[in-house]
Design a protein around this nucleic acid. Structure first.
Length: 289
DNA sequence: TTACTGACCTGCACGC
DNA sequence: TGCGTGCAGGTCAGTA
């Protein structure tokens, strides 16, 4: 499942392969993949054909290609999206949604997405950093230079929701998904259900520090892969899943205390924690200040 | 304004 | 073997 480290790896690969390339043609195989481009398929194609990719940038789980037209081509991988560099002669993938060819007539960009939760759209740049207008509500991620730890802690403390829900709220802190939320909370020994408002600022800083730490490690390992749904632009998987301490380890011993990890339902998805290190306990604003 | 829930989507695992 | 069901989960619209 692509979260920040996986998206960053894809962005770097896409930058390496496609920066400086002029788009020759665009084929949309499934309109759902460009559903967020409100002007429709013809406009999407019309704006891209002839444009040159000047670079790439990222915020949270979104990344985008900057174009010489001044606009940007935004990509979100959703659950299963892949941006692949393919050769013109390659057999079409069953889940190929959008295909870009370039002037060199050899390498192509394929947006492949099995579950079609991801997509592409063209947007205007909101500022000198080319942040797309539609992404201005996305908060900086813990690995970015704009990330403001103190402000993020303040915003988290204003929420009554479970601390995990706040970590997943991309308007508070971006880039963290279900996997890295569980890993960060495990490292911080914090129960996922605890209201964010009841956690001390120091503890929240600790959680955010752990999120930065675990995502940096995942980035170095090439990302987290459980199956073929996450791959880099060359089609290779990452290895960080072997080093996960909490996510997906139901029944396996906690790496700290040996207690079997438990899986719990959280907003129609799974949450993994150590019942001993991450106790439910009692909490209130009064007792935690 | 804030918090919560369901829908979207497809392949796979599992039980019958 | 074939069918039905549940599960995975990021984002957003709708609702309370």
């Amino acid at each position: 499942m692509p979260e920040l480290p996986e998206v960053e790896i894809v962005r770097r690969g896409a930058h390496h392969w496609f920066a400086g390339r002029r788009i020759r043609s665009v084929t949309v195989s499934n309109p759902r993949a460009i559903r967020r481009h409100e002007q429709g398929e013809a406009d999407f194609i019309g704006q891209l054909v002839g444009a040159t990719i000047t670079g790439t940038q990222r915020r949270g789980k979104y990344f985008w290609f900057t174009l010489d037209s001044g606009d940007v081509l935004v990509v979100h991988l959703g659950m299963s999206g892949q941006v692949l560099v393919q050769q013109a002669a390659d057999e079409p993938n069953k889940h190929l949604r959008v295909r870009l060819t370039f002037d060199n007539d050899v390498d192509e960009l394929w947006f492949v997405d099995q579950r079609t939760f991801g997509g592409m759209f063209i947007d205007e740049a909101a500022d000198e950093n080319s942040l797309p207008v539609s992404l201005t509500h996305i908060a900086p991620d813990p690995l970015s230079a704009e990330f403001d730890l103190r402000n993020t802690v303040r915003r988290m403390r204003a929420k009554q929701s479970p601390v995990k829900a706040v970590l997943l709220d991309q308007s508070v802190v971006s880039g963290i998904g279900n996997i890295y939320a569980d890993e960060s909370l495990w490292r911080a020994r914090l129960h996922w259900q605890r209201p964010a408002s009841s956690v001390t600022p120091a503890r929240l800083r600790e959680v955010l520090d752990h999120s930065r730490e675990v995502m940096t490690e995942a980035l170095a390992a090439g990302g987290t892969s459980f199956d073929s749904l996450y791959v880099n632009v060359n089609g290779s998987s990452g290895y960080f899943s072997r080093r996960l301490a909490a996510y997906g380890r139901e029944g396996e011993p906690c790496l700290r205390c040996g207690s079997p990890l438990v899986r719990e339902q959280f907003a129609n998805r799974s949450s993994f924690r150590c019942p001993r290190c991450q106790r439910r306990g009692k909490w209130s604003r009064a007792e935690n200040g």
